[in-house]
């Protein structure tokens, strides 16, 4: 049976932990807000870029680009994006699990895992897979040049023929309560997105006050464009650029998801601590009462013996 003193120490211990989890929750909430702003800030840009790409590539049946090359898939590369820190529930594990599954199901012998976040790197290695290239400490905030570096590496793997397909695994952010691990193909690029697909995509993506304008896009298609320097080069740049933006967006989504997951995990921890404190306090009071009763009985018994 624990003594009164021990109980008191335990309660103050739990209270300390609760203070920390509460502080972490606040920090995560603040960072989440900033991350969400980052995603929102990218939207006007990416939606415009999608427009441009769709318009170009849809009519461009004759365009050959290395990024469209469909080859029989033997080796794949996986860009796996999780975080540098723990204490965020199952956030890191989910990404690692999805990555490992993808790698193990791929027909090739070699793994080409590019991992972002030290937890992700460690997780993939623990599962017995090699990490070919790793990026740490790139969040808060994510910088666009980092996305370009990552993309350049993946592009090289694909263009040199080391891999025939590039996938990205990251956590898509819907709300602080809801994040979902998704796997998307980066390369080869889907030959052309149709307006319908883009429209669907944008209905989820577009913030208030912005609309997808199919009429505008269709009208623009009828327009004659002048290309500078020329059509092929513009296409090739657009496709390459779009790829970096996709990676950049995945990094931003992952960052927001991490903070969302941490916020929820810390909220639960704070609630659990509260429950524990209540229970321990109850136990402690019971203990105190028992000892008082015992002492009282002693006194009464002693007085009785004296008479």
């Amino acid at each position: 049976m624990a003594t009164f003193r021990e109980m008191k120490d335990r309660i103050s211990g739990v209270k300390n932990v609760q203070q920390i989890t509460r502080a972490m929750k606040m920090v995560a909430a603040a960072r989440l807000r900033r991350s969400e702003e980052g995603i929102r800030a990218l939207r006007p840009y990416s939606s415009r870029l999608d427009h441009l790409c769709a318009r170009f590539l849809r009519g461009a049946t004759g365009v050959e680009h290395d990024f469209f090359q469909q080859r029989p898939v033997s080796n794949i590369a996986v860009l796996s994006i999780a975080s540098d820190r723990g204490l965020c529930g199952a956030y890191n594990n989910r990404v690692v699990d999805a990555t490992v599954k993808l790698v193990e199901e791929s027909p090739g012998e070699e793994d080409h895992v590019v991992a972002v976040g030290s937890r992700c790197i460690a997780g993939v290695r623990r599962a017995g897979h090699k990490v070919e290239r790793s990026f740490e400490d790139i969040f808060n905030p994510v910088r666009y040049p980092v996305a370009q570096d990552i993309t350049a590496h993946l592009r090289r793997l694909f263009l040199e023929g080391t891999v025939d397909e590039v996938q990205v695994v990251f956590t898509e952010f819907f709300s602080p309560m809801r994040q979902q691990v998704v796997t998307r193909r980066l390369l080869p690029c889907p030959p052309h997105l149709h307006h319908q697909e883009i429209k669907e995509h944008h209905e989820r993506e577009l913030p208030e006050g912005m609309h997808f304008e199919p009429e505008e896009a269709e009208e623009a298609e009828r327009l004659v464009y002048l290309y500078e320097p020329n059509y092929e080069q513009i296409c090739s740049r657009l496709v390459a650029h779009n790829l970096s933006i996709q990676v950049y967006r995945a990094l931003l989504e992952a960052q927001a998801s991490e903070h969302g997951a941490r916020m929820m995990a810390m909220e639960n921890a704070t609630d659990n601590a509260e429950e524990m404190i209540d229970e321990l306090t109850l136990q402690m009071n019971r203990l105190r009462q028992e000892s008082i009763t015992r002492e009282l009985l002693d006194v009464v018994g002693g007085a009785g013996a004296l008479q």
Binding site: L52, F56, A220, L223, V224, Y225, L226, Y227, E228, P229, Q233, I234, R237
Partner: peptide, 19 residues
């Protein structure tokens, strides 16, 4: 700053995409 050199655009310019 188009790649081929500076490009001036006035209202009524032909529709164009440039890098």
């Amino acid at each position: 700053p188009a790649e081929g050199g500076e490009l001036g655009i006035l209202p009524g310019h032909i529709t164009m995409v440039c890098s």
